[in-house]
């Protein structure tokens, strides 16, 4: 790109710009819901964006790979037989002010769903998506993105990356799609002066130092899981602490297990795709009644093998965790990622 890769926008102009984006596409941004929890959600006006949020209760996959999603419809029309019609979602979506960990989660899903054969439902939504991230300056109690190489600042993967710097936002361009958005917003952005770019670099260093206390011991866990060096008794003890809610799968930005379900009435129907969780006891139950992973211990082991083994890390370019910390908040038991990696490292509960 020949144009400068960084811009500056003032706060008042930022709101104006968000207003323009809302006119152009569905804008999904952090928003305070009833009760005060912040969720990535559709915003209708710029003031609904919770710029000061720390973390959202939901990952972005809810919009790209929804919990319940229609795949196809059918009709049985007399002599014409069965007519099938796939259901694609081609809504233009701009994801605004998403945290670096969540954006990294989307990049992970990109790799999962673009493997042959491509998942056309995800890819269609993704092609109609623009990702505008917001760097983090304060770690949240539960998060550990530095260990997962997924924040607090990103080098690539975003279309635009915003950093709050005193009165202004620095805007880094990651893709041509991002540059397009800048170009379309005449007069709102100015090329970023060098001091501002330097200020962002200084901030990143300062912030990373603060994030460094938030740990998950991946290295030891990866090695031990890969080579099956975790004793069964330890899996067993972790299994005692799994209440099979599936919450970890559902809040995880990188989990993608699903099943399908059909509905039909009077000659027409549809097939939905629903999230599933590999920790559910009937996840591997076969029609014959045979269940290869009937033991909870084996399901816990399978989950963390998928998340942590080199075999998968090699294929998906990283282990299956972006350090968002949502599993810490949502696990009914105590099998969140940092606790599990720490247990595996120590070899004991």
């Amino acid at each position: 790109m020949s144009q400068p890769a960084a811009y500056v926008i003032t706060r008042p102009r930022l709101a104006e710009w968000v207003g323009k984006l809302i006119g152009r596409a569905q804008v999904i941004a952090p928003r305070r819901a009833q009760g005060g929890d912040v969720a990535y959600d559709i915003v209708e006006t710029p003031d609904q964006v919770a710029w000061d949020y720390s973390t959202s209760i939901n990952p972005l996959k809810r919009f790209l790979f929804p919990q319940g999603d229609e795949l196809l419809r059918w009709q049985r029309a007399g002599d014409d037989g069965l007519q099938l019609e796939p259901t694609y979602d081609e809504t233009d979506r701009i994801f605004l002010a998403v945290r670096s960990c969540d954006l990294s989660g989307v990049l992970f899903l990109d790799r999962v769903f673009s493997r042959e054969p491509e998942d056309v439902y995800y890819m269609t939504r993704r092609q109609h998506s623009t990702l505008i991230s917001l760097t983090c300056s304060e770690p949240v109690e539960d998060c550990f993105c530095v260990c997962a190489d997924a924040g607090p600042f990103l080098e690539t993967g975003f279309d635009l990356q915003l950093t709050a710097l005193s009165d202004d936002y620095l805007v880094e361009v990651g893709t041509e799609k991002g540059q397009e958005l800048i170009n379309q917003a005449e007069g709102l952005f100015a090329p970023a002066p060098d001091e501002l770019i330097q200020a962002r670099r200084d901030l990143e260093k300062e912030v990373e130092a603060r994030f460094a206390e938030h740990k998950s011991y991946f290295a030891a866990a990866l090695r031990k899981v890969t080579f099956d060096r975790v004793p069964d008794e330890l899996w067993e003890e972790m299994a005692d602490r799994c209440l099979e809610c599936g919450g970890c799968s559902f809040v995880c930005p990188t989990c993608t297990c699903f099943l399908t379900a059909d509905w039909q009435s009077e000659g027409e129907g549809h097939r939905d795709r629903l999230w599933d969780s590999c920790l559910y006891s009937c996840y591997t139950l076969e029609a014959s009644g045979h269940n290869p992973r009937a033991q909870r211990r084996d399901r816990v082991k399978a989950r963390f093998f998928h998340k942590l083994s080199y075999q998968f890390a090699k294929e998906l370019e990283t282990h299956g965790c972006v350090g968002c910390g949502r599993c810490i908040a949502t696990c009914l038991g105590s099998n969140d990622m940092p606790t599990v990696t720490a247990r595996i490292r120590r070899g004991a509960i």
């Binding site: 009760g35 005060g36 929890d37 969720a39 209760i57 929804p66 919990q67 809610c245 599936g246 559902f250």
Partner: peptide, 23 residues
Amino acid sequence: RLLGTTASAGHPVGQGRLCAKGW
């Protein structure tokens, strides 16, 4: 259209958690 369910982080009973039924 209902797309899904999310636990409320601040709720005093669930405290950010749900069981399989809730999810």
